[in-house]
Amino acid sequence: MKKEFTITVYTENHVGLLTRIAIIFSRRKINLESVNVGPSEVEGISRFTLVINEAEEVVQKVARQIEKQVEVLKVFFNTDEEIVWQEMAMYKVPTKVIAEQVKVERLLRQYGANTVVIRNDYTVFETTGHKEEIDALAEALAPWGLIEFVRSARIAIIKASEGMHKAVLEFEAAEPSEPAVENEFLDKRDGVFTM
């Protein structure tokens, strides 16, 4: 039976690793519902948070395939019950509507939206919450002239992760990571020796 799983992956910060992990899903025609990649809490180590809808058996196999990659440190997969998660969204609405429509003001209060920027022409709000909450506010604002809407990927904390942070810290301390090597020549057209 398919259900929502959140996959957390600790990796080296290397060029190309995103592809190497992404193709493990695309090869099996699994859609990634949400992808968040960035530095983990420990400098030098990246953290992927991926969301898919799949049967647990499939998720376990996929997790093992990810963990097999040379530059992957550790993979966890969890159901929604096992994690605390949030997404963030920003909503750009005409300032005039907020000033004049009490209903809109109520909506924003009801969803706990915070103001990020106020300008004469538009105002940007942000909320954090589960996907459904974010969707609901976006939908409710739509009739009032939502100018732009953007959401982030899911980020998640694993409830039973005692010792994980410490393990990652110790891992990094034992042998510090090397910075990602990038192409230093892309903007040095004439500086590169050619034949």
Binding site: N183, E184, F185, L186, V192, T194
Partner: peptide, 8 residues
């Protein structure tokens, strides 16, 4: 591979 500055 081609020269690094030519990649892409």
């Amino acid at each position: 591979q081609v020269f690094a500055h030519l990649l892409g």
